[in-house]
Computed example of a mutant assay.
Amino acid sequence: MSRPERNVHIAKSVKVIEWLKTELLDQIANLYKGLHQANQSLISDSLASLVIVVYVLARRVGVPYRELDQNVARKLREHTREGHQLEEWYGDLSQLEEYINKR
C-alpha cells in the first residue's frame, strides 16, 4: 500500500471509529427515550443496535468477535462467582451465561 493510500485508509478508519462512537451515544439516547416512554419496541430496537455497534466497534479497534465473546463469558463467570448484585437479586448473570452457552 502506497503512502497516500495508507494515509487515506488510516483517516477513513479513524472516521469510522468516531462515527461508531456517536452511534453508541445516539442509541443510548434512544434507549433512554424508550424507557421514559415505556416503548417496548424502541427499547428492544435500541438495545439490538447497541449490541451491533459494540461488536463492530470492537472489530474496528482490533478486538476479534471471538475474543469479545470470550471476554463476555469470562466476565459473566467472574461476576457470578463474586456475587454481583444482579446475580444475587435476580440471577440475571447466570441466566445470561446459560443462554450464551446454549447458542
Rank of each mutant, 00 (worst) to 15 (best):
I10K: 02
L24V: 14
A73E: 07
E67D: 13
H84L: 07
G62H: 09
S41A: 12
S41C: 09
A38V: 13
V61N: 01
V56R: 00
H36R: 07
E23H: 11
Q85W: 12
E97A: 08
A11W: 08
D45F: 09
E23G: 06
L93Q: 00
R103G: 08
R77G: 06
K102A: 14
N39W: 03
A58P: 01
R74G: 05
I52F: 07
D26F: 09
Q70T: 11
K12F: 14
L24S: 05
M1R: 05
R103K: 13
K33H: 14
K15F: 15
V14Y: 04
V51Q: 01
S94Q: 04
L86V: 11
Q40W: 14
Q85P: 03
Q85E: 11
N30Q: 09
R81V: 13
G91E: 04
G83P: 02
R103T: 15
E87Y: 05
H84G: 02
W19F: 14
M1S: 11
R59T: 05
P4E: 05
D26P: 01
L35N: 06
E78F: 10
G34M: 02
G83V: 08
Y32I: 14
N71M: 11
V14W: 03
L47N: 00
V56C: 00
K33W: 14
S41G: 08
K33M: 11
E23Y: 11
S94D: 03
Q95D: 10
S41M: 10
K33I: 15
E87R: 01
I52R: 02
G83M: 08
H9M: 03
K12Q: 13
Y65D: 08
V53W: 00
V54R: 00
V56S: 00
A58W: 01
A73F: 08
T80N: 03
D26I: 05
I17W: 04
W89V: 15
W89K: 12
D92H: 12
E78W: 07
Y90C: 09
H36I: 12
L86C: 12
Y99M: 08
E82I: 13
V8D: 05
L96V: 08
L76A: 00
I17L: 06
K33Y: 15
E82Y: 12
K102M: 13
A48S: 09
L76K: 00
H79L: 14
A73T: 12
L35T: 08
Q37V: 08
L47A: 06
H79Q: 13
S41V: 15
N101P: 02
K75L: 14
L31Q: 02
N39D: 15
W89E: 13
R77P: 02
R59M: 06
Q27N: 15
R81F: 14
N30P: 02
Q40M: 14
L86A: 09
Q40Y: 15
R3G: 04
T22I: 11
Q27I: 02
L76D: 00
N101Q: 12
A73I: 14
L96I: 11
Y99R: 08
V54F: 04
I52L: 06
V54Q: 01
S46E: 00
